[in-house]
Write a protein that binds this DNA or RNA. Structure first.
Lengths: 250, 250
DNA sequence: GAGTGGTCTAGACCACTGA
DNA sequence: CAGTGGTCTAGACCACTCG
């Protein structure tokens, strides 16, 4: 097999692209088109290698990278599966808040509202929308053992989340990203967060039962789907009296 | 080559360990013993493969993982090198603070003091020392374009940093971790951070020219060297008026 | 036992660097 | 040009899961 499945050299520069990366792109397209459903198994390495007419080693490498990007999950002896946000434990991939003592789980949600409105300029910019395009705004509070800890102010492009209502949100069990995935076909692949310290305003102080101007962690998260397309802007305010945001550097 | 360079099955369980992982452990030992110096090249894949009596593919895999862990750096056509903190750009691997506008670089340091004292209980616990073991405490301020942004309160085990003085710190150019590496042979491999929002106390407010109780990001970093041994506790206080802590989720 | 992913090998060839 | 890391192949065998 020569290294020209696709011809990457366009206009300037040779821009050599290894076979396994070309395969990776093709696989990613199939994932985006939902040729295999989230949580389901993809064909075996051998079969995919035959399908793409490459060696098993090359196919393996493409799959390895997709697994490293959290798009696929390998399970020895069982197969390779499409990642899903439906599983409980996965939600802490994006929520990095840990209690000072005890385990991470066990957050309860309280929905405040879910409204349609026009995107403010800053939200539109972040989501690559035109100013005043329609968006859905969801607000909620997360509590840990009866104590409110997180206030989330979430902005979603209406075009992608038609039919999202407060009832549907309230009825859903499990992570919100699971709902987005199963009901709207929107899958969060990665996200960027900007973290600051701010003082609580009156509204947030009340929701989190804190005093006015208490220090809060402000976590602005922009979540992206395939092709690095931004599909959610989430402004979180975390009370860090008995929780902390955990990060690992290496 | 059979898969028994070392016998991993001790007491309980088979605990199969692939060859490339055994090689990785051996390489890590050599790195820790500074058989190759930081910034310097290690032998080529071919030579190392011969030395360890494995195939080039297996050797390659071991090196790949060490590179993924940031212990080695591969440079095509040139060789593989031991990672170093001496280079300017590397310092932003651990300092994740970004200005709202403009580039990341260009922080200036002001040393406040560097004192020997006995470890308080919490510091001793974090650094795996006995209470009241001797430690060195360094305090400093980082500024960005004349504006103070970060106050660092750094605790180091005296046993590892004998001879660290305010003069030596002041004389050194480049990242502090570069000094630790070249002068004391202490190399930071990874770190864990706990991030909170706090209110500035009087002392910190003055150092960062903020008003009392201004919200600050509290970043408690525990840095580890080989074998996950903690060797630095750093309490940072970041003013996030025109900077933010950047994080990437995937 | 059949089927999956995981490891290891040996060898060919390509891309990049620097003398 | 020689030497390095990077890609690709074909094939053997091992470890894990499940019926």
């Amino acid at each position: 097999m020569t290294s020209t499945l696709a011809a990457p050299e366009a206009a300037h520069g040779p821009a050599f692209s290894p076979l396994y990366q070309q395969i990776k792109v093709l696989m990613m397209q199939r994932l985006q088109l939902a040729e295999w459903r989230p949580g389901g198994a993809i064909p075996s390495e051998i079969e995919l290698a035959a399908r793409f007419k490459v060696s098993q080693g090359t196919m393996r490498r493409a799959i390895d990278e997709l697994a490293a990007d959290n798009l696929l999950v390998r399970r020895q002896g069982k197969g390779t599966f499409v990642s899903t946000h439906a599983e409980e434990h996965v939600q802490f991939r994006f929520l990095r808040l840990m209690p000072d003592t005890g385990e991470a789980g066990g957050m309860t949600r309280r929905l405040i509202d879910c409204k349609r409105q026009r995107a403010p300029a800053d939200v539109a910019r972040a989501l690559h929308l035109r100013a005043s395009d329609p968006v859905i705004r969801v607000r909620r509070v997360l509590s840990f053992r009866e104590t409110p800890v997180v206030f989330d102010d979430i902005w979603l492009p209406s075009a992608l989340f038609k039919g999202l209502t407060v009832e549907r949100l309230a009825a859903h069990r499990g992570p919100m990203y699971g709902l987005f995935e199963s009901e709207f076909g929107v899958r969060m692949i990665r996200a960027e967060e900007k973290i600051r310290a701010v003082a609580a305003d009156a509204a947030i102080a009340e929701l989190l039962t804190l005093r006015m101007s208490a220090p809060l962690l402000s976590v602005e998260r922009l979540s992206m789907t395939f092709g690095n397309k931004p599909v959610e802007l989430r402004r979180g305010f975390y009370s860090t009296a008995s929780h902390y945001y955990r990060n690992e550097l290496s």
